[in-house]
Nucleic acid binder design. Structure first.
Lengths: 119, 119
DNA sequence: TATAGTGCTATACTAAAGTATAGTTGGCAA
DNA sequence: TTGCCAACTATACTTTAGTATAGCACTATA
């Protein structure tokens, strides 16, 4: 996997900051991460529930992205050993706190649109 | 160009919010946008100055990204009709305000790292 | 026995993002 | 007149991201 960012040469920015920023961008970018996080914000969901919220996603991508989000501590995968086996996905506390970041992105985006309109 | 996000089916989120969030992500994602913005945060720069700050970027990518950032109202390109012709790049006011967003991303990233370490 | 639902995986593909390398235009300095 | 600097552009390429389509293992229901 290639790193999205490479700040190695922007000396003024300490490495831990680069890494932290990198982490944040990584859990937000790509076509499907925000929709998935958005779907899970409304509560615990199963694979097919998320698919219903995001009809255009393929099972391959949903599976891949959920794995990725799990690896990055954004999503908890809970397996119920019932018949049939049920699997639930839920956001971690950390992931829930992302909404503050999203708010600030949203507000900047709205302001920026206004600024660009006015020119 | 393909859209990065497609929230069309996450009904709860009004379109203007989707667009604004989309805009914010678009000016942040990709391998080089943050390094370039970071370089310009330290002041007005010329093409080769930015290249010196970010040695690994190719002129093709720098040119492409600067155009993109200009189109998105993040960067102003000023041409001095001197000999030789000088060209300067500087951040717009809107772009400077991005540092608040970046701060919030940074803080979330730092917290998240701690949370994941402990977890 | 056939069909359908759940939670996926496999294979093959296209499209977008990024890299490598060379070349251009124009002036200028040695 | 050779070579260099600035600010790029052109072409070809590789890598990563995302899509399309099919199928599997298991169980329940008709």
């Amino acid at each position: 996997m290639k790193k999205i960012m490479d700040f190695a040469d922007v000396k003024a920015c300490p490495e831990q900051f680069v890494l932290a920023l990198n982490d944040t961008l990584n859990v937000l970018t790509g076509k499907w991460k925000l929709p998935i996080l958005g779907s899970l914000l409304f509560g615990i969901k199963r694979f097919t529930d998320i698919q219903k919220n995001i009809p255009k996603i393929t099972p391959r991508m949903l599976s891949k992205e959920l794995k990725d989000l799990e690896l990055n501590g954004m999503v908890k995968r809970v397996v119920y050993d019932s018949t049939p086996v049920l699997i639930e996905y839920e956001l971690t506390d950390s992931a829930k706190k992302l909404s503050d970041v999203i708010d600030s992105m949203l507000n900047w985006g709205l302001d920026h649109r206004k600024a660009v309109m006015v020119g």
